[in-house]
Computed example of a mutant assay.
Amino acid sequence: ICLISGGGSALLPLPGEGVSLEDKQAINRALLKSGATISEMNCVRRHLSAIKGGRLAAACHPARVLNLLISDVPGDNPMDIASGPTVADPTTCADALEIVRRYAIDLPAGARALLESGRGETVKPGDPRLEGVETHLIATPQMALEAAAEVARVAGITPVLLGDSIEGEARDVGKVMAAIALQVKRHGQPVAAPCVLLSGGETTVTVRGNGRGGRNVEFLLSLAVALDGAAGIHAVAGDTDGVDGLEEVAGALIAPDTLSRAWAKGIRPRDSLDNNDGHGFFEALGDSLVTGPTLTNVNDFRAILIS
């Protein structure tokens, strides 16, 4: 019985032939800073592993394997949850090399040799060693959004589910969400206030500054800048496991007075955004969202309340 959730990639490392743990850690850090999607990162990680990409399930053959998965990835594809140690992987070493090239990731010699030689190939669909594998998704981002929507309905607030697999640069998603919120506020479209815009998924951050970032706080800081203090709009965003980026902070909150309070403290919001310093920004305002470990992980959660 395999209980697998997000974070499994980090908790179950077994580097492939000629690759050290330090090599994989360095490659992973570079991918996180590059703006690569979670699917792209997982493709590379699977092909540099000796246990992911279906290899653990293959090692269990001929035993029956029952997968119970908690999804933290857009689209809930089992091969991307913890880099798919117990499911087939249709992607290839060539795909991984293309991703590395696309984002200009510097590969150590051993890792490059593993990919270029094809020795890092994963277990493919139709492999007889996977015939006894059964997979069930027991918690997903969509389930979290539906639960939040029910809470909103009980409170007399109309929920609008915008999607459970929204990706892209966090700051760009923030701008788009601000435009939707302002359309609701000004024109009552696509629904009238009071309402709450709910969304999930996993955005990315291309790191250009040296601040204390995280995709949810970067999203919120961009959202606040774009809203420019619009009345009656509040928002919360956080990683459902309680850790946004590398900080033991789930995310943060914004309100119509977020920017004015920052300026009063001598903090320039746009400068904080340019420096990828979302955590520093919200910590200074006392608006960080600290939950502690939630013991689950169904990706990011975002809610924008329009009153």
Rank of each mutant, 00 (worst) to 15 (best):
D274W: 06
I138F: 07
S199E: 04
A149F: 02
V133D: 04
R64W: 14
D106I: 13
N67M: 06
L221G: 00
M41K: 13
H136N: 09
S9D: 15
A88R: 01
A82F: 08
R186K: 15
E202Q: 13
N297L: 09
V207N: 01
G6D: 04
I157Y: 06
G84T: 13
V100E: 02
A152I: 09
A104V: 06
I267M: 03
Q142G: 13
G132Q: 12
L137H: 05
C93N: 05
S165A: 13
I233L: 02
R302L: 14
E150D: 11
L11V: 14
A10G: 10
E202H: 15
S307V: 15
R29I: 13
A26P: 00
C60E: 11
A104L: 08
H187E: 06
N275M: 12
V133N: 05
A152M: 15
P90C: 13
D76Q: 11
A193T: 08
N276Y: 00
A155H: 01
E146Y: 13
P293C: 06
L69I: 15
G188V: 04
L221T: 03
R112Y: 04
A82T: 10
Q183F: 13
A237D: 04
V225N: 04
A10S: 07
E167M: 11
R208E: 12
A109E: 04
V176C: 12
G213F: 02
D106C: 06
V205M: 00
S71E: 03
S288L: 10
L253T: 15
P62Y: 04
F282R: 03
A104D: 09
L197M: 02
L31F: 12
D287H: 11
G118M: 10
P194S: 03
A63E: 15
T158H: 08
K33D: 11
F219L: 01
V184F: 05
D80P: 14
V151C: 06
D23T: 10
K175D: 01
D277R: 00
S49G: 11
E40K: 00
G242I: 08
P194W: 02
N210E: 06
S5I: 09
A104R: 15
N210G: 13
